[in-house]
Design a protein around this nucleic acid. Sequence first.
DNA 1: GACAACAAAAATGTCGACAATCATGTTAGA
DNA 2: TCTAACATGATTGTCGACATTTTTGTTGTC
Lengths: 228, 228
Amino acid sequence: MYQGKEAVPGPAAEICERIWLSIAERRLRPGTRLKEEQLAEVFDVSRARVRQALAMLESDGLVTILPNRGAFVSEPGVDEARDVFHFRRQVEARVVERLSSNISEDALPRLEAHLALEREADARGDTTATIRLSGGFHMLLAELAGSTFLTSMLRDLISRSTLITTMYRRHSHHNCGPDEHAALIDRIRARDLAGALEAMEQHLRHVENELDLTEDVPVLRDLRDALV
Amino acid sequence: MYQGKEAVPGPAAEICERIWLSIAERRLRPGTRLKEEQLAEVFDVSRARVRQALAMLESDGLVTILPNRGAFVSEPGVDEARDVFHFRRQVEARVVERLSSNISEDALPRLEAHLALEREADARGDTTATIRLSGGFHMLLAELAGSTFLTSMLRDLISRSTLITTMYRRHSHHNCGPDEHAALIDRIRARDLAGALEAMEQHLRHVENELDLTEDVPVLRDLRDALV
DNA sequence: GACAACAAAAATGTCGACAATCATGTTAGA
DNA sequence: TCTAACATGATTGTCGACATTTTTGTTGTC
């Protein structure tokens, strides 16, 4: 899912996750305006909360806030998309290195438990849970690597990846298939750092290759509603 | 300086910059508690503003906020320090690539103008301006590269670098000397991408090598005030 | 004298109301 | 009829007051 720790993530984080999920499920399209009052009513919270959540989402690159104008779902261009995946490979490689060098006792059991949840959600066709858990797998890796810095960096990159995927995917959603996650766990369990790095690299390349990053999707901004 | 654009950065950003400068000048040490009301009085703004600024600083990794406990200047460990410089090299390399591939007309003049300011501040011994401009040089590069994503990523990394430098520097502050910046501009002007990448790499290695990243500085947290 | 429970103080968290700003619709003038 | 200035409505931005939580200081008992 979206954030790693469920220990007191604050009520605003829950709103972030729900908006993130709406974006991932394409219920919220890039360019859509997010009115504060409207969100406050939907989630039944105060406007201050919504404002908090929007600020978080902005720092994660999911929404763009124009002063005195409002918040919009971001529309990353292809160059940004390439950068995001470029750095995501770098960050996740570092995560795998860290995790391999000093792996805690409960790391493998937790990874396998998570994988089981992924497979279960995948089997019953629960796309919401599948999306949540796919991202959550990578977040869990960062968490187990024991670096809050890598974790926060990765959360940012995964948020952006999700949005980019909805904008530029060619065919059906790839969903970060559980099988590739399983392969990675397998290499980690075998204490095979090189193999783990390769599995991660291949996995991320696979995700990126499902996208069509040849040209920018036209930016429409405010015209969106009228033209669709 | 701290943020690139001076066009409507919001009043909260100014507070961020002043706190960042205080940290860079070692007037605020890692672990120091930042009381909201106190800051509100110092800067003569409302507490909501301070809260806004603290949230930004947290997302930049400069302060750590403990729910219901308060905000503290962060104390990054050596592993985080290494990660920060590792990724900073990656990001800045990407910036140089982007800048080289499609360089705008006013890029070189602006870089040289900035360099002149750096030399001037350095000559008159204005450490505050020197720190500001040293970070600002890198931010300007990212801005000229035309990627808001790289810019925001770099701001985060530079903030963290500054804090790390104050914690782990061996001797005197290196200050991102203007000469190495000049060498980089020189390579960019010559359209020498490989040379520019090497100049940047060397520059960042130089900064990192001034640090002693062999062991964590002991974490004292709340005991700090009593022991100092 | 030491520990535990309780009470007071201080700091953070939250919310609603008001002010400033921008977008839209209207009207007056050429 | 078209343009431009104005007025209106809607939306975001800001602030101060109140509620909650933590910390500190005190007191009473063992």
